[in-house]
Design a protein around this nucleic acid. Structure first.
Length: 422
RNA sequence: GGAAAGAUGGCUGAGCGGUCGAAAGCGGCGGUCUUGAAAACCGUUGUAGUGAAAGCUACCUGGGGUUCGAAUCCCUAUCUUUCCGCCA
């Protein structure tokens, strides 16, 4: 959520931000509506002042035994006028809200304009693995090594699902364990969250109302407004909704493991077979609540942590600065860590490191009190650490051997209890 | 699944149609006392909008209604607690 007063003051700045995001909106019209609201509110306030005064007078007349009929008629008329203004106000407000609450975040200055094509590769870690044998894709490897049961997953849950099986389940769990231990070491607080959230969480995180169609709703008589979380960020960022945190308690550093549920409508591409994209996948997510001046420190910390995980796993990846049009709605800056999938010869996202600045803080009404007593909205940042369900195929493909086995990354051996998958 | 009771300021909790933005206690802040602290005593203390300020307005979970007037009455949503049933 943005500050309408600031939009009024610096309209060009906001227009420029939205242009970079490829987001079209008529700010001029929005500002006009806002002015109208202010005007109506003032009018309403004047009427209410009269009403309040009248009620007091009425009480006095009644108690002194005087005639109240004239005043009563006046008051009824006043009440009618007030109701009219209130109704008008509600109408304008509704139109205004529709546009205002849908506004995306601003973007940081160095954000490249445009869509995906304008993403910038900042660096590459490791070398593209090359194989002196015919490399397999992760689907083949999963089947041969009996790590994933695609057929029965489809049978019980439909397309876009898979079942981690035997050693596969243990590998996924090992990656999760590795992530958890890394975050604990860095002093992040572990949360195990509910997976069904209230609508307002989606609003607070900035995903709703605009992108409510991307999530699964519990569309029943029971919990009609609740949905399956698409990422733990949606929950973590709402944890302190309507709270005022103390400055000395910041930063707050959380992480959570959850499955993530997404409809992924229309994104079923043939090259994303296997476990590249599903309706449910596992992810460990980090979130920090910070004071504005701590934004950069937190950003570097989260980025560093996410990168370190992939590095320790010894995987080839690249770091990408996203263009504005590729940002999630609520984010002002996002860099992606993209893992290399040899069979696709493509890099796919395993972590998004983002700052929302105070966009989510405003939407969730999460503030912090400074040492001088004044209050301000918190900044929130988030980063995956990491999407294990995508790390899984990357490990299989990047670590595969000529004989069809897969070497287990060193850091996972202690969790998995073996150093080779065969 | 059934039944009942609730939701009031940072917390506990009174108020149940007008003089209520709201008692009291705790906590917080300031002071007296003290070498310092504790205790005791005195004072002070909700949030937001608007305004230069005085002030004005809104807020007693959210929404709607009744009324000249609602924390208080009615409807509704949400949440909480307790009891019974079922249950990992």
């Amino acid at each position: 959520m943005l500050d309408i007063k600031d939009i009024k003051k610096r309209k060009e700045y906001y227009e420029n931000c939205f242009k970079k995001r490829q987001y079209e909106v008529d700010l001029e019209a929005l500002i006009k509506q806002y002015d109208k609201i202010v005007e109506l509110k003032k009018l309403q306030e004047e009427l209410l002042t009269q009403k309040n005064k009248g009620a007091k007078d009425f009480d006095l007349l009644k108690r002194t035994g005087k005639d109240t009929t004239t005043l009563q008629t006046e008051m009824k008329e006043l009440a009618k006028q007030t109701a009219q203004i209130t109704e008008k106000l509600a109408k304008v407000q509704e139109e205004y809200d529709k546009v205002f609450f849908a506004l995306p975040n601003i973007v940081v200055d160095d954000t490249p304009a445009g869509n995906k094509e304008n993403n910038v590769v900042l660096k590459t870690f490791g070398k593209k693995p090359s194989f002196d044998f015919k490399a397999k894709n992760h689907i083949q490897l999963c089947k041969q090594l009996n790590l994933i049961d695609y057929d029965r997953a489809t049978k019980i849950a439909g397309e876009g699902n898979w079942i981690y099986t035997g050693l596969g389940a243990r590998l996924e769990w090992a990656i999760l364990n590795f992530c958890i231990e890394e975050h604990l070491k860095d002093g992040f607080e572990f949360k195990l969250l509910p997976h069904i959230l209230k609508y307002e969480c989606g609003f607070g995180a900035g995903q709703f109302p605009k992108f409510a169609n991307e999530d699964f709703f519990i569309d029943k008589n029971f919990l009609p407004n609740n949905f399956l979380l698409p990422t733990a960020e949606t929950a973590l960022v709402n944890l302190h909704k309507n709270e005022v945190l103390k400055e000395e308690d910041l930063p707050k550093k959380y992480f959570a493991y959850t499955p993530c549920f997404r409809i992924e409508a229309g994104s079923n591409r043939p090259d994303e077979k296997g476990m590249i994209r599903g309706h449910q996948f596992n992810k460990v997510e980090m979130v920090e609540y910070v004071a504005p001046e701590d934004n950069e420190r937190a950003w570097n910390e989260l980025l560093g942590k996410a990168e370190r995980i992939v590095q320790k796993l010894g995987l080839h990846y690249r770091l990408v600065q996203l263009a504005g049009g590729d940002y999630a709605h609520g984010m002002a800056k996002t860099w992606d860590i993209e893992i290399y999938i040899p069979s696709m010869d493509r890099y796919t996202e395993v972590s998004s490191v983002s700052t929302a600045l105070n966009y989510q803080g405003r939407r969730t009404n999460t503030k912090y009190q400074k040492k001088d007593g004044t209050k301000d909205y918190v900044y929130t940042l988030n980063a995956s650490g990491i999407a294990t369900s995508r790390i899984f195929p990357a490990i299989l493909e990047q670590y595969q051997n000529a004989d069809g086995t897969v070497t287990v990354p060193q850091v996972l051996v202690k969790y998995l209890g073996c150093d080779i998958l065969k």
